[in-house]
Design a protein around this nucleic acid. Sequence first.
DNA 1: GTCTATAGCTAGATAGAC
DNA 2: GTCTATCTAGCTATAGAC
Lengths: 187, 187
Amino acid sequence: MRPQKIDDIKLLEGLMTTFRTKGYNGASLNDLANSSGLQKASLYHRFPGGKKDIGLAVLNFIEVWKEQNIVAVINNKDLKPDERLSTILKNISSIYENGECSCVMKAMSMGDGLELFGDELKFGAGIWLKTLTQLGLDFGFEQKIAEGKAMQTLVKIQGSLIVSKNLNNTQPFTMALNEIELLYTNI
Amino acid sequence: MRPQKIDDIKLLEGLMTTFRTKGYNGASLNDLANSSGLQKASLYHRFPGGKKDIGLAVLNFIEVWKEQNIVAVINNKDLKPDERLSTILKNISSIYENGECSCVMKAMSMGDGLELFGDELKFGAGIWLKTLTQLGLDFGFEQKIAEGKAMQTLVKIQGSLIVSKNLNNTQPFTMALNEIELLYTNI
DNA sequence: GTCTATAGCTAGATAGAC
DNA sequence: GTCTATCTAGCTATAGAC
């Protein structure tokens, strides 16, 4: 067994960055090879199913990130709800580089992506909503209210990333994070 | 002068649909030709600059739509602010087919699109914000408040379209339109 | 496990008949 | 103004050396 040149995490981070920047169709295998530090043919060794497999691996990588940085935080009953909220907002800001980079949910849902990854995208969105609803319940809101706030939170994140990208200004994203905080802490 | 097989409006509607569905990179010239009713070479006759020109024409087509269906409505002082609001929400719901179709702002900002159309996308977003801010002022809100509500409105539209697309369910979009109404009419 | 080289195809774009 | 036919460059994917 010859050693891997690039470890899985570095590899997936590079691939994720390219998909986020260029979208699923816009990212060519040459782009993916360049950003990952491997050659095209080596990518096929790591991901035998080709481009679709790479996309799935990146989506799965994001689910793992979410599990560790969102779900686990919200389920950590050792922290008060407002501490959990500020932690996940910090983590969200970090993964999106303060609003400077696009969401994979958007990047992977254009072109062939929606067709190829429809189930995974639906699942991923469901995790967001289910987890955020739990946070609302822990804040003391009723089920329906908590569900509404969860949806508003997800919509604010996705929408503000697009508007930030189009205006070439991160202010909408930082504004949205502040509004999300008020959504749960304002009476 | 030989007559046009397809008039400009039908042509641009078909092209817009394909870009919205597949994204800028995902839409091939064959796709664009099929959806417009013309052959590839005929598209080059109508748009000598090729794919980029088609993209610009579609973005311009949307600006014209916005001018007629958003800007003109909000500037129509014969209507009360709440009448103007409900009219533009109806128009927004209509252009996005009740949330079933993606926003061009998102579709055109992925891949090469952001680079090619960065200025146009920024301009288009600016029109939304400027116009919606005027609506807020006419409702009697202060400048800063009106600007915040305009941003929230744009973010809700964009974000809810993505979430609707990913969940394969138009509920987030219709929910967002209701929330936008409350944003202006709730005290 | 990674690489160079290349196959087979489709992309965007053009030439020229009608 | 629209079409068929075609060009070249780039794409995804594979073969086979190391």
